[in-house]
Design a protein around this nucleic acid. Sequence first.
RNA 1: GUCUUUUUCGUCUAAUGGUUAGGACAUCGCUCUUUCACGGCGAUAAUAGGGGUUCAAAUCCCCUAGAAGACGCCA
Length: 474
Amino acid sequence: MIIKTRFAPSPTGFLHIGSIRTALYSWLYARQNNGKFILRIEDTDINRTNSKYINHIFYILEWLGLTWDEGPYYQSSRYDFYKDIINLMLKNDLAYKCFCSIKRLSNLRKNYYKNSEKNIYDGFCRNKQFNYNKPYVIRFKNTSYRDSVIFNDIVYKKIKISNMILGDFIIQRSNGKPTYNLCVVLDDNNMNITHVIRGNDHINNTPKQIKIFESLQYNIPIYCHLPMILDNNKQKMSKRSGLCNMEYYINNGFLPEAILNYVIRLGWSYFNEEIFSISKMKYLFNLNKINKSPCRLDNKKMLWINKYYLSSLKYKKLLIYLKPIFEKKKISINAIDNISEIISYFCSKTFLLSEIVDYCNLFVDKKINFNYKKVKFYVSIDIYDLLVFFLKKISSNIVWNLININNLIKLSLLKFNFLNKKIIFKSLRFFITGKEETPNLSIVIYFLKKKKTILRIKNSIKYILKYFSNIIIS
RNA sequence: GUCUUUUUCGUCUAAUGGUUAGGACAUCGCUCUUUCACGGCGAUAAUAGGGGUUCAAAUCCCCUAGAAGACGCCA
């Protein structure tokens, strides 16, 4: 028997980190067993389905490298298939038409809550042969309410749910479209899915689905419900919440391998290991070792993992990841001549791709626009003298290397020893880069090269002179 | 409210009846680079509470409390 797993998102929002883990686990399990991984788009809710979300699903799975072997199947294009089986179910007394109005059902529900009873359909149309000319839904004709459904979950082991709470649930809406619980069963059977790996918010759907499987005499797949990943408010992640959204991770410079590594460790572990490459995951991952308890995201740990992968990437691959971010920030790579040297140096010092790009931005050939409020803090006669001195020294005929640049800084510290050392560093940094926080000053100067450094200091000197004259005038 | 599930450092987790309750991230300290950052070293920190079973309980059983999900003509 070929192992078949599926990832079956509904395109009603952007994928979040929880769906990614579900996809990863399903994908891994299929790959470990030489099985097949199927992509199925569950788009039976016409009102909420949006094609941009479908494209997003493809994009993210491809970005992560979670390739699928079959599909994508669209449930919306399989209505005829579902329809045939619904008709069969009607014919074999496994389902019935229900003409109850929405108003009647909502009143029913209100009363149930008031009397704290089970909220299920009361079976008003169950054994009647109505044939009104008005809209109807089709309900599954559930078996004895005294039964309970028992199934063995890979993660949660034995789960027992009373048939009492299932009731005669709807399998076809009044608009003629089948509902989720029916489509899932028919598709999982039709596509020969052997293992259903999904979030545990579906645990309560599982008995309903098992009931349909049984009534149609299909083979019931093995279920594996994964504990929820909760957001920072300890709530189920919403497709709209920003921090869990995959767009956020991509735009902020996370690497796919880092995301997968972080996500596989939520609810699963292998001794004290933290780093899992794809091949290592395939080798070590074990469905039977998944935890039951829900977990929360830790952005700091994710950053740490991202840093790990960032520093281990080769320059060429790194550049592929960096290019779209450069473009998004409208920075031209060609404007920095020693870009490869700069990127190779900074990739081991940063947590995010976007940080590397920000650092690169320091070396772009452009005029610095000083923040006027901050200038006030740095500008003084002494700093002016310092810059003039530094300019003179750096313009001299020196070999451009880190040692010599360091020596120049040392020399300046000595010459201006009446100034606070921190002030000297901070001022040089500010007037050379326009920023208050940068990597090591001598490294920055080294990468900036002689010509640009001189130009920038000259501009800063001019700027300070102008600043002084403005003060005198006013 | 009903049903299902869950509870080990702040967070992710290890420990299948005998451990000094281990690791990672975070935090804090020290330390290197005459600055920040990075790095190196170290420290703080947990078995939800109460009963039981047992020579022995984080681990098995019961109760209580907290948390999450489900209870749709959403998926």
